[in-house]
């Protein structure tokens, strides 16, 4: 009975998940591109892989992805935790803020990216407006036009979009802390920091691990914000693995090479996924 109910789902999952993954894996061993497509596609073994591993651009995208991920994790955890701590204060009427800070998460990432492009517009953007008004810059800056500022702003834009999730995770965890623990500590004369380090952090540890791993995985995989805002530019400064692979496949039509890179990307990622499965989910699936 159980199997009968499962079978359509399993069939669909095999067709749309397993089969594509196998096709992707197989393609990575072939010189599958626009030129070879009509003359027969030659098998080339691990050539795509060695080409990728010896490719300067691939490693640049790899390091960019690491920085992009690290900055996102730091930003999202810091902002999410601060907001969650504020929301958790025993104060009336904070519920409305909880609803409002979710809004960035609701904005489709393509729209979020567009609205950030408009905020950062080199001539009429609000960011330039504010920066000029406060005398931070003397004239409008093309923020997405130079490598460093572009790298910083794509991170800010994505942290803005994604932090509500970690705020929610932390808020949920904070609510499990018994309130009388704080009161007892306060009576014993423990200050705010002491209470934070000795009560809040130990209780949050598990969800911080969860948040960090999930944000790491999702940021590592992310594509939309950077693609819309910079397309990996300027000069590859914001090129991450996802955008680089996408370009190889759909702008240069080198599907075999792109597949090998995407398999490598999964291999890098699997380190984190395995950590996550063992540390977090493994315990819960009985």
């Amino acid at each position: 009975m159980g199997f009968f109910l499962m079978s359509p789902t399993i069939a669909v999952m095999v067709l749309i998940i397993i089969v594509p993954l196998i096709i992707g894996l197989v393609m990575s061993f072939f010189n599958y591109n626009l030129l070879t497509l009509h003359r027969g596609i030659p098998f080339i073994g691990f050539s795509n892989y060695s080409k990728a591993l010896g490719d300067e651009n691939f490693w640049m995208a790899f390091w960019n992805t690491l920085w992009w991920t690290a900055a996102n994790v730091a930003g999202q955890v810091a902002l999410g935790l601060s907001i969650a701590l504020l929301l958790n204060q025993p104060v009336k009427g904070v519920g409305i803020y909880k609803a409002l800070i979710l809004i960035p998460w609701a904005v489709p990432s393509a729209v979020a990216a567009l609205s950030w492009m408009w905020l950062l517009h080199p001539e009429f953007g609000l960011v330039n407006d504010i920066a000029v008004r406060f005398g931070l810059v003397s004239e409008p800056v093309a923020w997405l036009g130079s490598p460093f500022t572009a790298q910083v702003w794509v991170v800010i834009a994505r942290v803005w979009k994604e932090f509500p999730l970690s705020a929610l995770i932390f808020h949920a965890a904070l609510q499990t802390i018994p309130k009388d623990l704080y009161e007892a500590a306060e009576v014993d004369g423990a200050g705010v920091w002491k209470r934070f380090w000795n009560i809040t952090i130990p209780y949050l540890k598990a969800s911080i691990v969860v948040a960090i791993t999930l944000i790491t995985i999702w940021t590592f995989n992310s594509f939309n914000m950077i693609w819309v805002m910079t397309k990996g530019g300027p000069g590859g400064a914001t090129e991450i693995l996802a955008t680089s692979i996408y370009k190889t496949a759909f702008q240069r039509y080198n599907f075999g090479f792109a597949s090998s890179q995407s398999i490598l990307m999964v291999i890098f990622l699997s380190v984190i996924i395995i950590f996550y499965l063992y540390k977090v989910e493994g315990k819960k699936i009985d």
């Binding site: 999952m13 998940i17 089969v19 594509p20 993954l21 096709i23 992707g24 393609m27 995985i217 590592f220 995989n221 594509f223 693995l241 996802a242 692979i245 996408y246 496949a249 759909f250 599907f255 792109a258 597949s259 995407s262 398999i263 990307m265 999964v266 990622l269 996924i273 996550y276 499965l277 989910e281």
Partner: peptide, 19 residues
């Protein structure tokens, strides 16, 4: 099920395009 939710979309996109 859990693992598939963690794979990068671009990994599926290329074979899907071909399929």
């Amino acid at each position: 099920i859990l693992v598939t939710r963690m794979f990068p979309a671009v990994v599926f996109l290329i074979p899907f395009f071909i399929m």
